[in-house]
Each structure stands twice: as structure tokens, then as C-alpha cells.
Simulated assay, not measured.
Amino acid sequence: MSWYCDIAPGHPFHGPYHDQEYGFPLTDERALFERLCLEIFQAGLSWLIVLKKRPAMVAAFDGFDVDKVAAYGEAEMTRLLADPGIIRNRRKLDAIVENARRLQALRAREGGFAAWIERHHPLTKENWVKLFKATFVFMGGEVVGEFLMSIGYLPGSHREDCPVRLRLNAFEVPWARVGADFYLK
């Protein structure tokens, strides 16, 4: 997504995400769940729509608290479907709730979402997609690839000459531990 490095700087929505979040390592369960949900919401839509609706989605989904979202029933679904501030796609909304429930089970089995991701690292994108499809719902190559790129587990979030990429070098970005060539397999 190196084109993002061209369009994002200075943009009111893309800029902050590109400069402060995209490609940076994440381990907080709530933040990981939010990012996964945002990628699900983006499927078939522009990332700009997702970024513009993000504050409303954070509010509508109780800050993407996994346990709260996992407890959602039909009343919450009715509320979400009536909320014009969010992306109202029933399949995506159902996937968010189901994935919260699956994250609870994963937490019990693996010690958490971050621990599960780290335990499987490194994998090629193809193998990550297979793993995510076996574990969660509404997972495709774009959702999984962008999610993992956005949290530093797959390379490609920034061009090599991007100032943010240079800042990322100061972090222990997971994909860099094995090098970009590993992911070309």
C-alpha cells in the first residue's frame, strides 16, 4: 500500500492514521479488536469512509470492548442497524459480534489475541489467511492482509523512503525480525 504514503500526509483523516497508527505494533486486545473490526467494515468500501465513521463506531461498539460486544443480542443489533453514524451491514455486524465471542474463547485458550498472533508469527500472508479463516468469520485476503500489515506483522505499510517507515525502524516491528524476504515465499 505504498501509494498511501503519497496521499496520506496532510490529509485530515488519512494523515493521522498513516503517521501514528499504520504499521505500528499493537498488543492491546481492545485496540487489536478495533483494528480487526475496522478492516471488516472496510471490505468493499473505501478506507476513508471507515476513518470518517470510526469515532461513531467506537462509541456504538462500547469502545470495542471484547466482552461487551460478545454479549450483544438482538436489542443491540437493532440499535446498531438504526445508527446512521456507522456502517450498517448486517453480515459485518454479525461478524463483529461473533468474532468478539471467538476472541473470548481464544483468550481462554491462548492467553489473548496478541499472544495468539505472536505464537503463529512468522507466517506468509497465505498461511495467515488460512489461520484467520479457521479462527474467525468474515475473513478474506484483504481483511487479513491489511489487519496484519496495520499492526506490523506483514511488511508493506510504508515505502522505504517514507518518514514513518524510518520512525518504525525504532520499534521492534514483528515482520522486520525475520525480514521482508521471508514473506515473498
Rank of each mutant, 00 (worst) to 15 (best):
S2Y: 14
F132P: 03
I49H: 02
M57Y: 07
G85I: 02
A95N: 09
T124C: 02
A43E: 05
F24L: 12
N99K: 02
M57H: 05
V69Y: 07
A60G: 06
Y72C: 08
F41N: 06
P55I: 03
Y72K: 09
G141I: 11
G145C: 11
S150P: 00
L48I: 13
Y183L: 14
L166H: 13
N127K: 15
A134S: 15
A170H: 14
A95V: 04
Y4D: 01
V97C: 06
D161R: 09
A105L: 15
D6R: 15
P122D: 13
E118G: 08
V173Q: 12
P163F: 03
A31V: 13
L36M: 14
F113G: 01
K68R: 15
R119I: 04
E142K: 15
E172T: 14
E98M: 12
N169K: 15
V97F: 06
A100N: 06
L103P: 01
A8D: 00
L123S: 02
D161F: 00
Q42L: 04
A100L: 13
S2Q: 15
T27S: 13
D19I: 08
I151H: 02
A70C: 12
E118W: 06
M57A: 12
P9E: 08
E146Q: 12
A31S: 15
V69K: 09
V137N: 10
L131N: 02
D6H: 14
R35Y: 00
V137M: 03
F182E: 04
E172A: 14
A8T: 00
E74N: 13
W47K: 10
F138E: 07
C162Y: 01
F138M: 13
F64A: 08
F41L: 11
Y153S: 02
D6A: 14
I96F: 08
L103E: 00
P155F: 08
I117S: 02
L48K: 05
F33V: 09
P16L: 10
W47H: 09
F41V: 01
V178R: 10
A134W: 01
Q42S: 06
E76S: 07
V173A: 12
E118C: 12
L48N: 08
G85L: 10
K52R: 15
V50M: 07
T135D: 04
R177A: 13
L81R: 13
F33Q: 06
E160K: 15
G179N: 11
E29C: 04
V137Q: 03
W3Y: 13
Y72I: 10
